[in-house]
Write a protein that binds this DNA or RNA. Sequence first.
DNA 1: TTGTAGGCGTTATCAC
DNA 2: GTGATAACGCCTACAA
Lengths: 332, 332
Amino acid sequence: MARARAVTIKDIAAAAGVSLGTASNALSDRPSVGADLKERVLEAAKQLGYRRNLVAANLRRNTPRTFGLCIPALDNPFFCDIMQNIVSIAERNGFDVLVLETREDGRDEAAKLETLYANRVRGVFMVPTATWSGSHDPETPLIVVDRIRPTEGLPSVALDNVGAVKLAVDYLYDLGHRDIWLVVNSRSIWNTNLRAEGFEAAALGKDGIRARVIEVGLTARETADQLNAELALARPTAILTASGIATLGTLRALQDARLAMPDDISLLGFDDAPWMDVLRPSISVVAQPIEEIAAQAWALMQAQIASEGNGRHVELDARIITRESTGPAPTR
Amino acid sequence: MARARAVTIKDIAAAAGVSLGTASNALSDRPSVGADLKERVLEAAKQLGYRRNLVAANLRRNTPRTFGLCIPALDNPFFCDIMQNIVSIAERNGFDVLVLETREDGRDEAAKLETLYANRVRGVFMVPTATWSGSHDPETPLIVVDRIRPTEGLPSVALDNVGAVKLAVDYLYDLGHRDIWLVVNSRSIWNTNLRAEGFEAAALGKDGIRARVIEVGLTARETADQLNAELALARPTAILTASGIATLGTLRALQDARLAMPDDISLLGFDDAPWMDVLRPSISVVAQPIEEIAAQAWALMQAQIASEGNGRHVELDARIITRESTGPAPTR
DNA sequence: TTGTAGGCGTTATCAC
DNA sequence: GTGATAACGCCTACAA
């Protein structure tokens, strides 16, 4: 499709009988232009169906109205939520978002970042993979989202993972649970490992609690199978999970073991999902404040662009959504 | 953050001691450049950390390496899957994609489309809202995805909705079901209405079948409540749903009514989701070929760019994923 | 094979 | 308040 030449500012300047500069000023709504001329220019623009060429504009002003977003997996509901919120805020502020998927691949990630830089994005929001080298363009503001890694002090925003788990343990403890398991997919993942550490730390401070971390595979199926094996040997009164996948797998294991929630056992999931609110019993969860995470990421980006608050790290609090899967500990 | 001037082609030309044109040719890997010079240029580029400015390049050649994607809702797993697949294909082909969310709002949609055009995207993939005016830039290839509307012949790709439902009805009929309901959220939505029509048509051709369309509200909760009311009065042997939301709501209703799947009743959902495979019983579904939809959308886009096959419409077949929620009709 | 120069559509800086 | 004119960084005839 050979694109016809689009109508440019020059065309409308000619049509309105003004100079190119004046046309530009009028179209950009700059103060220094007479009301009558402005009218004429705008009219001509509408007549000709003028559409500002943002790529030219961006080239000229060197501050594009585009942000970049690097997400590990676009088919993951949690990341989709993050994306949805960031895109939404950006749009509200008149920015576009270039979305790239890194598929949890560190090599790829570096290439994706380069692509973003080649497009001269104004800044990058990034959920880094575990293998990210950390290398980035110091000229382009970069906000790390959700996953903080023990690296150079990049500005970042994430859940207070330790606090979240502590909240969960408190909640279960107050319901009378003394025998609690944490199901975690892999302690080699930074966030879930933090949650496991938080779990152990929280348990340490409680009287008469028997807390145990069950480390399982990365899929829901593996989680279910391995948890089933554990449940054949012993049984807690409550299970807390450290991720959405773990929640799903645990749910399956409990159904396989014909344990009723919350009468036989309480289940407190991690990360909310629409179906959790609908199923019977609906699933209580530790929910991340995704909107707030996105809002803080945006705020950090603005600060970074204004070169304030370099390297600040923001941690946000989780909240517990109480539904039907959690209840008082059974008295045995 | 006042961005320092980035290193340009001019800088590396100077550093390599060649002319600007040669530098450009070398960096673009054009044939007409000596091996030694090319080497020197590439070396200089690496030394200085040169990064091609794509916005300048795009401006010059007027064929950006960016596509636009308009999606109604970024928090919907089905659309996320579509997006993931399109983004993935685009990336594989060296293109970026600008993602915009229309929130099912037709006014917004027009504005979003304008944004994309302002960025001079190479083409637009779009899942249109019900209220889309259909207006678009004839110069920019537009591929309609998932939702075909009875409009001007835009190239489009979608599920064969009628065929999908026919497949589902055949499947249930063969299992012995004669009393089948279709739960559909709203017949004012084009796709789900097609599914309802397909359901009625498919049932017409079957001996001794009693088929009924239950139209419910737009949320899973409403679906559950309204279906519960219906189930109090009568009960089919199988329920087919017309969307993911409807599936979720139906599931809740069945759990509320304490109907066991598949012994009391069979449930065949629409659109697959990870949790459906994990829960007990796992949910059988009519699944859309999302990868193929994305691949076809891409192919249509390429054809459109080459100005072939204008206005072609592609329909793809659904397939049934048999899991535990469907089984032979109970003999009463 | 290499260098030169014009232009893509804007914005911004000047004179007027 | 308005109008030339010079960038922005790159690509690409075309000339050398």
